[in-house]
Amino acid sequence: MHIKTQARAAVPPSLADQVYTHVKNELFDLALLPGDAFAEADIVAVTGVSRTPVRQALQRLAREGFVQVTSRSGWRVRPFDFERFEQLYDLRIVLELAAVARLCKQPELVQSPAIEALLQAWGVAPHQRLPVGRDAALLDEAFHCTLVEATGNMEMAAVHRDVTEKISIVRRLDFTKQARIDSTYDEHGAILQAILKRREAEACSMLKAHIEVSKAEVRKITIHNLHTTRASYSSRSI
Results as ranks from 00 to 15, higher is better:
I3F: 04
V213D: 07
R219A: 13
T5C: 08
I191D: 01
F82R: 12
H210F: 12
T228C: 03
D36R: 04
L103T: 02
A125S: 10
I169E: 01
G133W: 12
E108L: 11
R76G: 01
I115G: 00
V23W: 09
E96C: 06
R102C: 15
E26T: 07
L27K: 09
V67L: 11
G152Q: 09
A99Y: 10
R134A: 02
H210Y: 15
A16R: 06
R172C: 08
V19W: 06
P12D: 01
V54I: 11
I43Q: 00
Y20Q: 03
S205P: 02
R129F: 08
A142K: 08
A158G: 10
A39C: 03
S50R: 11
T70N: 07
A194G: 02
T52C: 09
S235P: 05
A209L: 12
E96A: 04
L32Y: 02
E64Y: 08
T228M: 07
I223A: 13
D174K: 13
G35R: 00
W75T: 04
P53H: 11
P13V: 05
T21S: 11
D42F: 01
A62G: 09
L97P: 02
A150P: 09
A216G: 15
T146I: 12
G133D: 10
C204Y: 08
D135L: 15
E141K: 06
A179W: 14
A142F: 04
L118F: 06
L119T: 12
L139Y: 06
K220N: 11
S214L: 05
Q128C: 09
L103I: 08
G74Q: 11
V170N: 12
A136L: 08
T164D: 03
M206I: 09
A231L: 12
E86K: 13
R230K: 15
A190L: 04
L32F: 03
Q56R: 15
I115Q: 00
S73P: 02
A203F: 12
P12G: 04
L27Y: 13
R230H: 13
I238M: 10
E26Y: 01
F85T: 03
E202F: 14
S73Y: 05
S237I: 14
H160P: 00
E212H: 04
R76L: 06
E187F: 03
K4F: 09
S205G: 08
K4P: 03
L147T: 06
H160W: 14
D162V: 07
L33G: 01
F175I: 05
V11I: 14
A16C: 10
D162K: 07
F175G: 10
A9L: 14
V148E: 02
A190C: 02
L196Y: 07
I181C: 02
I43W: 01
H144R: 01
R180D: 12
A194M: 06
T228Q: 07
T5M: 14
S235G: 09
P79Y: 10
L119M: 12
I167H: 13
S73M: 06
K166M: 12
A57L: 09
R60A: 13
E26F: 03
L32W: 03
Q193R: 15
H127A: 15
A194R: 05
H144C: 00
F143D: 00
T146Y: 05
V77Q: 00
A216P: 08
V46E: 10
D182K: 00
A150C: 11
